[in-house]
Design a protein around this nucleic acid. Structure first.
Lengths: 247, 247
DNA sequence: CGTCACTTTGAAAGCTTTCAATAGGAGTGG
DNA sequence: CCACTCCTATTGAAAGCTTTCAAAGTGACG
């Protein structure tokens, strides 16, 4: 349930699961009617340090958001999927660069107007807080991963997170390159590759081409991942995405 | 300016620097009149997974907030200082344990009532968003540190962050143990110790007892830290803590 | 002043990275 | 439609940084 991949975004529940109150005024409805922009794979949507002019609703495609150290080392803070809202956790400037991994379609909304509207709409305010809390939760999962997990645990955690967020029946799509994955997990491409090879050899996963992997033994994988988040945690916290401001 | 240490808290400007608008209704004013609770060093204020009943204003002392993997590995998500507000980024449950590093005095406020009040007070709403954005910013700094910095860079980044947040003339107080620092930086106590020894040998720092360190050559230290955040970034983003909702 | 916990230091081991080369795929042009 | 080229991914071997294991040193506290 916790959007581990989306360090800086929030995925709303599928429309079918929204209750009446939420359906009547969802944050993402604000983007309805906004013109949609296209970005080709590799293009930047905005740059770290830019004036934070807009907030984005991702309709199609996947983005990576990252920061870079002066000497060029890159750390990817998260991958943004369709249904995520990108850019809510900024004040005046973007804290990272957002780049299209695949071709991407987004709707843009002026940040100023976005906050003004949310501020004026009582039903939307808790949703904004919920987004930010989800982002913090994902960021903390990632800090735990980066600070205390082994290479294999990181890779498996990543695969499971992708499966939760975007998986279709235990097969996951990985549109990003190995370098992207490595920079997200604090590893090198070689290490990521070796871990995937090892998991394959043990029959835990089955790569299908470069950008798809079938997860074979979810239970074993979850055990490897560390078990700190994921299904078990979800079971323990079923309502975590619901109302924040208890009206 | 970004509160790198406070992964889950927000430090308000000193009262003297607050402008008129902020002074009239600061978020922390909500805690005025609340009874203050004392926790001895080592005591937990709340536990990960607990129902998130309260939000805390830290008056004195330092806290550590952490998560633990099933096998016992610990990752400290941040240290909370006086002036920080703890617990705003939770939905229904606490995402981590908060424990007193030193004796601590806090004011408690029911989370439900806190959000209700903020929701009903237009001047406070942007402040809440600002807190959450600052937390995200700190979390991202930490992800960059954990994912892409060397042991020495991590230790120096930490020292500089403490100096920015709590330093008095280039001398910093480190109330937490080496184990706490290690678990915060994704290292071991031995590595932290070795890095401090190395920095001392090179004349970059001068330990004064176990829990205080004088920073000798700030410029050189900043260079080691990686230069991604800190003073330079502050210079480039002077107004980042100010208004969020552009009224 | 002694004990206990924390910190520092040393040496060896281990995991990940680095450097290097091979393999595999996608896209392009003939 | 196939061959060629380039980019990405995988694999191998050695190096390096951090950890682990162990022991000595230091400081706080009773």
């Amino acid at each position: 349930m916790h959007a581990q991949l989306a360090a800086t975004s929030h995925q709303f529940p599928a429309s079918g699961t929204a209750d009446a109150a939420e359906r009547s005024a969802s944050l993402r409805d604000l983007f309805r009617g906004q013109p949609s922009d296209l970005y080709s794979a590799g293009e930047a949507v905005f740059w770290e340090g830019d004036e934070a002019g807009h907030i984005f609703d991702v309709l199609e495609g996947v983005l990576r958001v990252y920061r870079i150290l002066p000497d060029g080392r890159r750390a990817i803070m998260g991958f943004i999927y369709p249904g995520d809202v990108l850019g809510v956790s900024f004040q005046s400037r973007y804290l990272f660069t957002a780049e299209a991994v695949t071709d991407v379609r987004v709707r843009r909304f002026a940040r100023t107007r976005f906050f003004a509207l949310v501020n004026d709409t009582p039903e939307l305010r808790p949703q904004l807080i919920a987004i930010l809390c989800d982002e913090m939760s994902a960021a903390q999962d990632q800090m735990l991963l980066l600070g205390r997990k082994s290479a294999e645990e990181r890779v498996v955690s990543f695969l499971l997170a992708v499966n939760r967020k975007n998986g279709v029946g235990n097969t996951i799509d990985l549109p990003m390159s190995r370098l992207d994955i490595a920079d997200y997990l604090g590893l090198t491409i070689e290490t990521v590759s070796r871990m995937l090879t090892g998991l394959t050899r043990r029959g835990l996963i089955a790569p299908a081409g470069r950008h798809a992997i079938a997860l074979r033994r979810l239970h074993a994988l979850r055990e490897i991942a560390g078990g700190d988040d994921g299904e078990s945690a979800v079971a323990a916290r079923p309502a975590s995405r619901r109302a924040v401001w208890p009206n």
